[in-house]
Design a protein around this nucleic acid. Structure first.
Lengths: 197, 197
DNA sequence: GGATGTGAGTAAGTATTACTCACCAACATT
DNA sequence: AATGTTGGTGAGTAATACTTACTCACATCC
């Protein structure tokens, strides 16, 4: 019998937690279903009751984690009036959250992107919605005259997201610590004021 | 007997070519050693004569491809005098090369980064050397007064590399085409002149 | 010109892995 | 009392990455 996905039984939650914990130590591919089942205290078969595949399990984990991340950023953005302030909050919050939740960051920025299935998943739909929010902030900034009128909003978003991701990747992979305030300031300065003298 | 790696016999080259060709159609993990061997016209055992593991094979493929990429960019940078011009060449060449060689880009930006072994590989050493070259260009630009003196060179590099990668990722994954000239111009404008009005 | 070693390649394994399927035991609902 | 649904088990299975023992061809050296 197949699970319909309208409940959240303890076994299911244990499986999600087990994968998340195991991914502190190694990458997704190196984690086996046997390990997950053992740590969760269930049988391997149960994993496939709740998730179509090992990958699908990963996407669900990401989906849960991203929902939290998204909410955290939106909350912090709420009280900022100007578009540039909002974008600064996005930069600072992302870096903060990524470094504080390395497993989440690794899943989002590295593990899922390799396979095409991800881009049809619920998790990716959430990521897309988040990206749209950023785009709207940029467009608002242009309308209000805060951001140069000739700026391509899609490209500015790429600059912002790409920079954030690249800035965190090194620290995530090598588990180095970084000074969130200093990096946020440096990034904002370059993106908003330009590098040219 | 183990292979010592001082020659490049036909079998070895066939294996590398086979993996590269197979990765046009699917991601690395979905490509099996059986498939590689069949397309190369050799036995599975031979793969493990020349490569310690399937991953090691991937790193070697990347190593070869990155060497070409690196050389192509350096050649194009050679005749540019100013630092900003050099950086523009880097941006344009990267985007051009990534979109023209999607398999290379996918390996470099997506497939290898998931496992820690990569960061100890020869291929990664090459990538690091390339990154150092970019850093030197930025430092030169600061010394010559082209780039703002208070710019953090490491952060500017992150902005440039992060933006390039993010800009290409979407197009690589969804195999969309992009206007290299237009995107290069937009990116350069934002990074060098800033987004703020 | 036999002995010795070495590089290129094969063939037949093996342990592990992701995934399946039939089944069980409660507990609702009809 | 019959029927279905949910949460969970346990014994499988095909396929996969990797290993080991083995050829064959060809240099080189005394």
């Amino acid at each position: 019998m197949k699970h319909k996905g309208h409940t959240n039984p303890p076994g299911r939650q244990k499986i999600i937690e087990a994968l998340t914990r195991l991914m502190w130590a190694k990458d997704f591919h190196s984690v086996t279903t046997a390990e997950i089942a053992e740590l969760a205290g269930v049988t391997e078969g149960l994993i496939y009751k709740y998730f179509k595949s090992k990958k699908e399990l990963l996407y669900q984990v990401l989906n849960d984690l991203f929902a939290q991340f998204n909410q955290a950023v939106l909350d912090r953005m709420a009280d900022k009036a100007s578009a540039i302030e909002k974008l600064e909050v996005i930069i600072r919050s992302s870096i903060e959250y990524y470094t504080a939740n390395r497993v989440f960051a690794r899943i989002l920025l590295l593990e899922v992107r390799t396979s095409p299935d991800y881009f049809r998943s619920e998790a990716y739909a959430r990521v897309k919605a988040y990206a749209r929010t950023i785009l709207e902030v940029i467009q608002m900034g242009i309308q209000q005259g805060e951001i140069k009128a000739n700026t391509d909003p899609l490209i500015l978003r790429k600059v912002i997201l790409g920079t954030i991701e690249h800035a965190c990747l090194g620290e995530i992979i090598f588990t180095r610590d970084l000074d969130v305030q200093a990096i946020t300031y440096s990034i904002s300065t370059i993106i908003f004021n330009g590098a040219k003298a």
